[in-house]
């Protein structure tokens, strides 16, 4: 009798747990609801054409950002930079008027006056990867995306657009001595500030000779 009681209690407990643990639906109904997969290309195209220009127009001058960070790092990082991930890396959308010093296979070195000397900046023209543009633009909120895959696909699309529509014509036209206006994303390591040849991932490039 005691044995049967034990079995009954066990079965009842398992049944209750199962009842509280799972629910059933028709697969076809669930599929119909979740059929709309994330369209990274469409999303990126929309923010590229409708929202990014405003962000580029309001980008901070690189030299101003450096000065702000050197004067009050916490405040400057808070006001001018953005990051979607935890860590020391922050991204900012910056602008600079500079002169092309050297055209390399993978980048273009430009110079601009800063303090009492010249600051050399590397503009990436070949390897445009990572999340710098997406994060610096502040147009994407991590909370809107159910998985990191979708979030990363936005970066991929943004980088692809830069490679195909911005860099291709620029690389064909640019030469040493050209005056350029560069607007793009910069990644800054909060813990190890280094302004020696910072790298910009360009989003807008104009030759203004």
């Amino acid at each position: 009798m005691k044995k049967y009681l034990k079995y009954i209690i066990t079965i009842a407990a398992v049944g209750l747990l199962a009842y509280k643990s799972v629910y059933f639906k028709k697969l076809s109904e669930v599929k119909a609801k979740t059929a709309t997969a994330f369209d990274a290309a469409g999303f990126t195209q929309k923010i590229w054409s409708e929202q990014l220009n405003t962000k580029l127009d309001s980008a901070i001058e690189l030299t101003t950002l450096i000065k702000a960070i050197e004067a009050a790092p916490a405040d400057a990082f808070n006001r001018h930079t953005n990051a979607l991930a935890i860590g020391n890396y922050r991204n900012a959308m910056v602008k600079l008027n500079a002169e092309v010093k050297q055209v390399n296979e993978d980048d273009v070195l430009v110079q601009l006056p800063f303090a009492d000397s010249m600051l050399t900046v590397k503009v990436a023209t070949e390897f445009v990867y990572g999340n710098a543009i997406r994060d610096a633009s502040r147009l994407v909120d991590v909370k809107d995306f159910p998985n990191t895959n979708d979030l990363n696909s936005i970066s991929e699309e943004l980088n692809k657009t830069v490679r195909t529509t911005i860099l291709k014509p620029f690389k064909q036209a640019v030469k040493a001595g050209d005056k350029v206006v560069v607007t793009g994303a910069i990644e800054i390591n909060k813990a190890h500030l280094n302004w020696s040849e910072p790298e910009i991932i360009p989003v807008r490039l104009q030759i203004v000779n």
Binding site: L17, K20, S21, V22, Y23, F24, K25, K26, L27, S28, E29, V30, P146
Partner: peptide, 24 residues
């Protein structure tokens, strides 16, 4: 928790509550 278990043969979707996912 997020995706549950799909059983296409029976057109069945088994969803898991938080408790169910933890037990799983």
């Amino acid at each position: 928790l997020r995706n549950g278990v799909e059983i296409p043969a029976g057109d069945l979707f088994v969803g898991f509550t938080l408790l169910g996912a933890i037990l799983g």
